[in-house]
Design a protein around this nucleic acid. Structure first.
Lengths: 332, 332
DNA sequence: ATACCGCGAGAAAGCGGTTACAAGCGACGC
DNA sequence: GCGTCGCTTGTAACCGCTTTCTCGCGGTAT
């Protein structure tokens, strides 16, 4: 393969070959209908012959739009997040936008820099379950570009957001275990700075029923965290454990089974999110169906709206319901 | 919130406030050491006061480098891929690069356009398990930018690649089930155009042992595909099923369990990839550990090398081994 | 003292597009 | 017959930064 230094074909070459001005070529590629058919086809022919492709970066600089939107995820290893991303990806794609993804890996400190960096190369930003404080969000919004926050309630700033009613769903899920006869519950806490965690835990603290106790156990958001929490769960002498999310629930179930305990006979376990795996675990996981597809779609629609000039501040609140599967059972 | 039309702070403002030329400001931000300390600090002070941030798009246009690398994934819903991406993301980050991700969703037709689009906004491209044919790859490589292909052997073109020895690992895994006494095996085929699938199936076809039969059953790459294949697996009257990957294996196990069969007592099941979930399923999945972290790292190193001028054509071949867990057992 | 060298700094020409503005031109109304 | 309008097309000024080239200057070899 010879390293032929192919000079890039620019709009000027096309203009020259088609015998028109660069403006006309630009118009043709922008889909403007104010160019005569005659010139349009001459431009298109010349472009095809030369193998011209518009230079995306130059277009961005000149037009001030990148047709890219950044997405900041706290942890790409959680199927919950990539399900969201996957749906956003498709919605964005059909609008001609690309998504640029960064993973903060649950690092609070990394969020501001990553967010800024994403914003620098994009027209807007979607923050999934951001852990950062309001100052950072203010700083980011100061760039004047659309920002959509998912799974985090922000009232102060004029940011748009997509929220799921974690509180009500968690209450319903807890009620389900209580209805099954469980009295000593453990709530397995997730990432400390997560809004969803705060909502879920807040819901658990409102549980008031005769004889019912809720013991919090610290964990985190991963399967390993759930797995590692098992000794502490057992020490709490409970009959049901409500995990922060599906991932930790899966870890808990594996840990219990390794110790010869069976779920749900010896212990009921619930998750939250309803990731695709939840249906396929053994036993299938009782959880809360968080509408990942709708969230992804809503996040994109709101963002796209702002890119087209909508005022920020739109708020979408989605509701969600428990999904009862096989990991919970009546107390024996 | 007032919609203050904040004019962007440009390099010129900084230059003016610092009493130097724009060239000097540019040099300071580029980390050139040919600027005197005196001027360097004046520039830095002015930049801080004004809240200046270099305009990434303009930098890209002027320098010809975007500091972005595109990644094309066939299916973001497979943890195998996002594990790769996650590791690449981190490697790239420490080199000051961003990754821009697109998901072709197993659509062969979508790959060329997505690849081109990614390439247009980036300095290079990483194709994960691409399904497209050689012509498309040639077309993409014509752009003159570094392309790294992961999990796909390409000899003709001068592309760099990272490969895992699927063939040997699959043979070893099959041998494992044979050693356990199984004779009637089913191989559950994955995505047709996947190189990994071809390698794995090729390995299965080399199995020659007295009384051993291997029956192929078509499926796909997802949990649903594995789940849906269960009737056909049962019809094949086998005692062990080797699935294309972990996801389908998980689907198969769930399907078997729904029918009251237990794994591994009634049926041994294996996967491939060793996604994080494989350790936490019930029973824990016997699979092949595909070194996702190393692959991600290698893919980035090779790509980064080419970005720094290395010649393309580098090839990394990784080996991998079966991981025996609890989803396989001796034939009763 | 003269010529030369090296180095720090600035001027200016791009990078490849977009788009405001102007111009040309045929049609139409009065 | 002339002013006006509308539509297509071209001219050229950016978008914000990088980088080459040039220049001025102080220091060293001759």
């Amino acid at each position: 393969m010879t390293a032929e230094r192919t000079e890039r074909v620019t709009i000027r070459h096309v203009a020259h070959n088609a015998g028109v001005s660069v403006a006309t070529v630009s118009r043709v590629f922008a889909g403007s209908n104010s160019v005569s058919e005659e010139l349009t086809s001459r431009v298109l022919d010349a472009a095809r012959d030369l193998g011209y492709t518009p230079h995306a970066v130059a277009q961005s600089l000149a037009s001030g739009r990148t047709r890219v939107v950044g997405v900041l995820v706290p942890n790409l290893a959680n199927p919950y997040f990539y399900a969201l991303i996957k749906h956003m990806l498709h919605e964005a794609d059909r609008d001609g936008y690309r998504l640029i993804v960064a993973d903060s890996d649950e690092s609070l400190a990394a969020e501001p820099a990553l967010g800024m960096s994403l914003l620098g190369r994009s027209d807007g930003l979607v923050l999934l379950s951001p852990r950062c404080n309001a100052e950072v969000l203010t700083e980011l919004s100061r760039q004047g570009k659309p920002i959509t926050v998912v799974n985090r309630q922000i009232d102060e700033l004029g940011l748009s957001s997509v929220l799921v009613d974690n509180f009500t769903a968690m209450r319903k899920l807890a009620q389900h275990t209580i209805d099954l006869g469980h009295r000593r519950l453990v709530y397995l806490q997730g990432p400390a700075r997560s809004w969803q965690e705060r909502e879920r835990w807040r819901a658990m603290r409102t549980i008031r029923a005769p004889g019912v106790s809720v013991t919090p156990v610290r964990a985190g958001g991963t399967m390993e965290d759930g797995h590692a929490a098992v000794p502490r769960i057992l020490a709490a002498d409970c009959t049901a454990v409500l995990a922060h999310n599906d991932l930790t629930a899966i870890g808990v179930i594996a840990g219990l089974q390794e110790r010869g305990l069976s779920v749900p006979q010896d212990m009921s376990v619930t998750g939250f999110d309803d990731i695709p795996f939840a249906r396929f675990t053994n036993p299938a996981l009782t959880t809360v169906h968080s509408p990942q597809e709708e969230i992804g779609r809503a996040a994109w629609r709101i963002t796209a709206g702002m890119l087209h000039g909508d005022r920020p501040g739109a708020r979408t609140l989605l509701t969600t319901e428990p999904v009862i599967r096989a990991s919970t059972a009546p107390l024996m």
